[in-house]
Design a protein around this nucleic acid. Structure first.
Lengths: 159, 159
DNA sequence: CGTGAAACCCACACGAC
DNA sequence: GTCGTGTGGGTTTCACG
């Protein structure tokens, strides 16, 4: 790694296993993690803090059933940016992540420029979202919406 | 709700705030959560366990920087299922989530049937993935791949 | 359901290797 | 980097409202 670059220090086998265990249950106690890794608690804690400090770990979150809070409908919205507004793309993406209901935003290469994953109550909410935040936006050329019948999470890439 | 049914009991304001706090940092101590919510620790723990038991909380995970483990490239792969193989779609989706590198699978309505989000090392890996797991699969009619330049996570829907 | 109190267990410094 | 230990604080149970 070049000096001054953000720390992407090599991860050893223990680091990877630690990440894998946390991916399965991020609320496990440090003691139980250490036991399964076969290292001392203090060592395990030091590694965990190092992974946080070096931004390998971005954070710990809870995975919530979307339907539990009245968000029964998910959709993917493809967005094409107006050719004359390409310089607004990065800004546009960030703005979209602030909109309630938008859970992910992909900045794409290819036919379409953006893909937004939205989780909302019903079809009316999707329409409102597209009309209010996309069609009205000066940078947006056009959009295309697909309903999500099922959303599956894959195995974490460091399996 | 009928007894024995999967609990989608109403969430009150405290439950929602609890989920929001956990979304921001899933490893916060129960004590600090209780303090911020203005309830007793034991009450907070009881609510947390209830949310887990009723499957409102699916789990706690760690958010890892994808590049940190050598996965520098992300792509979206759209998949069209062969008309005669529609009955294999559900099975196909589950199988895809087991493939290393596949982080998400969307089961779609619209032009295309599936969208796969893959996180891999380089372009060669994308090609290998498409050739080995998609083109060769009897249910797959055709695929289309878009590179992901940036992947942003949105605010959680219960903000 | 909610709570306070108490036993138990854990997190997180240290200092040493 | 790794480890063992101590102690302040957290987790969890339980009897009670």
């Amino acid at each position: 790694m070049r000096p001054g670059e953000r720390g992407l220090r090599e991860l050893d086998e223990i680091d990877r296993k630690l990440l894998r265990l946390l991916a399965a249950d991020a609320r496990r106690t440090n003691a139980s993690l250490a036991a399964e890794l076969g290292i001392a608690q203090s060592t395990c804690l030091a590694r965990l803090n190092a992974l946080r400090a070096s931004h390998v770990i971005r954070g710990f979150t809870v995975d919530v059933e979307p339907g539990a809070l009245g968000n029964a409908l998910q959709a993917l919205v493809f967005v094409r940016i107006r050719p004359g507004a390409r310089h607004l793309m990065s800004e546009f993406g960030k703005a979209m992540t602030e909109v309630p209901g938008v859970t992910q935003a992909f900045f794409l290469g290819g036919d379409e420029d953006f893909l937004l994953h939205v989780s909302v109550r019903d079809a009316q909410d999707v329409r409102d979202f597209v009309v209010e935040h996309l069609s009205a936006h000066p940078a947006v050329a056009n959009t295309r919406t697909s309903l999500v019948f099922e959303h599956l999470r894959g195995a974490e890439p460091w399996g």
